[in-house]
Design a protein around this nucleic acid. Structure first.
Length: 417
RNA sequence: GGAGGGAUGGCCGAGCGGACGAAGGCGAUAGUCUUGAAAACUAUUGUAUGUAUUCCAUACCGUGGGUUCGAAUCCCACUCCCUCCGCCA
């Protein structure tokens, strides 16, 4: 959520943002609603003040005066009640519209309408020349390390069984990543994966992306699609000393996504599934330093991929392709030989004060308290990293062989043998 | 799942219908005293919003509703914590 004060003191930025995101929003309506609710509140508070004053008189009045004062107070009480009901109504009306306003896009993010317009920043690593590469599903199924058919019988489409070496690699990857992140100041965290509505609302997944979230209606809980949600919500309603920032967490969790509206998209293997494991970085940081923190998180992501010798490119996501909460976002796309293209394996966003304002997380220094900034980034999305590892290291005979350096990290030299 | 008890400022803890944004203590900050420090004493010490910039108004005593002229205080619902029983990785 943006600070409504922007309606008063920085309308140009708001208008620019709306046009960059290609949205149609009636700003004048927002301005007048905001002004109305404020002035109504002022009136109501004045009346309330009178009421309190009168209450004090009643407490000190003698019997004769009391009767008359009570009549007056009763009337006033009614007026105040009605006024505040009106104020609440206006507030609701305003904020229902206001929460839908997406975050201000960074001046440094490229313009554009869709992922076609994302800006490639760099390419790193050597793409191996593989003649007629197989996809990860074929390779891993043949090696008895993956079974999506059985999974679809048991759980439906977009689920998978991982076996043997793939599981070994997963746990090695996770523990290796957590160790690396720990050295960089991220506290390893296993967060809850079931959360209340408020955590999803606070992180900006609600109301916009509600259709992607699994719901447990009996208990009013939701399965998180990323540990970003419980990590962000960890410090809800807190005021953190500026010197303690940045607070960095590395969350490991299973992620659940409904993938609604993706029928027919990425149906092969485990690229797009309802359930996968992920190590996620999350930072709470001062507003002044969030741009630097964003670059830092990106650099960590790159370091991990470089260690795994996965060829990738970095993309600066354009205005039209940014989610509601992000001010700026970098995606890293790994080379996927079977698709002959780069596909997203990590994503890091600077959400500036957008989530922190909704979650009411502030930073305090020398008397001044202000909303802080939050950032998130993928460290290891296990499924997609497995795909990249398998496909980029396949041999002509349908096996997979890793370099000594990579084998040292993942604990496997020749897959499935 | 069953039976009870509780939630008040950074912390402890009083208040149980008007004088309460809230006693008292601890902690913190500043000052007095001291060569310096400690002790003692004095003062300050929550957050947010507003048509308010050292003033003023309003809201906040777990959360949301209700009763009342008036609610931290009474009523209802919810959340969380504690104790006991049962179950359980």
């Amino acid at each position: 959520m943006l600070d409504p004060a922007i309606l008063k003191d920085n309308l140009e930025d708001l208008e620019l943002n709306i046009s960059r995101r290609d949205l149609k929003i009636d700003i004048n309506l927002l301005i007048s609603l905001n002004d109305e609710r404020k002035s109504l509140r002022f009136d109501a508070e004045q009346k309330r003040s009178q009421q309190k004053e009168l209450g004090k008189q009643i407490a000190n009045a003698n019997e004769n005066e009391k009767e008359e004062l009570l009549d007056k107070a009763s009337e006033l009480s009614n007026e105040v009640k009605l006024l505040f009901e009106e104020v609440d109504k206006r507030d609701e009306e305003f904020f229902n519209l206001w929460v839908k306003i997406p975050n201000l896009i960074s001046k440094t993010s490229p313009d554009g309408k869709s992922d076609q317009d994302n800006l490639e920043i760099k390419k790193v690593g050597n793409v191996k020349d593989i003649s007629s590469p197989k996809d990860h599903l074929e390779i891993a199924t043949k090696l008895n390390l993956l079974d999506v058919e059985k999974a679809s019988e048991v759980s439906g489409s977009r689920f998978a069984y991982l076996f043997g070496d793939l599981v070994k690699i997963e746990f090695n990857l996770v523990s290796w990543a957590l160790n690396k992140l720990s050295e960089k100041g991220f506290t390893p965290t296993v967060p809850p994966v079931l959360v209340r509505e408020n955590a999803l609302y606070g992180t900006g997944f609600f109301p916009d992306d509600a259709e992607q979230v699994y719901e447990i209606p009996n208990d009013d809980l939701y399965l998180v699609g990323t540990s970003e949600v419980p990590l962000a919500a960890l410090h809800t309603n807190e005021i953190i000393n500026l010197e303690e920032l940045p607070l960095r967490y590395a969350g490991f969790s299973t992620c659940f996504r409904r993938e609604a509206g993706t029928y027919g998209k990425d149906t092969t293997g485990i690229f797009r599934v309802h359930q996968f494991d992920k190590v996620e970085m999350f930072s709470f940081c001062s507003p002044e330093k969030s741009e630097k923190e964003h670059e830092f998180i990106l650099s960590v992501e790159e370091e991990l991929l470089q260690s795994l010798e996965i060829p990738y490119r970095v993309v600066d996501v354009c205005a039209g392709d940014l989610g509601a909460s992000a001010a700026k976002k970098y995606d890293i796309e790994a080379w996927i030989p079977s698709q002959n293209t780069y596909r997203e394996v990590t994503s890091c966003s600077n959400t500036t004060s957008f989530q922190a304002r909704r979650l009411n997380i502030r930073a305090k220094s020398e008397g001044e308290t202000k909303v802080l900034h939050t950032l998130n980034g993928t460290a290891i999305a296990v499924g997609r990293i497995l795909i990249a590892l398998i496909e980029n290291n396949q041999t002509e005979d349908g096996n997979v062989k890793f370099s000594n350096k990579v084998a040292e990290i993942i604990g496997v030299k020749n897959l499935g043998q």
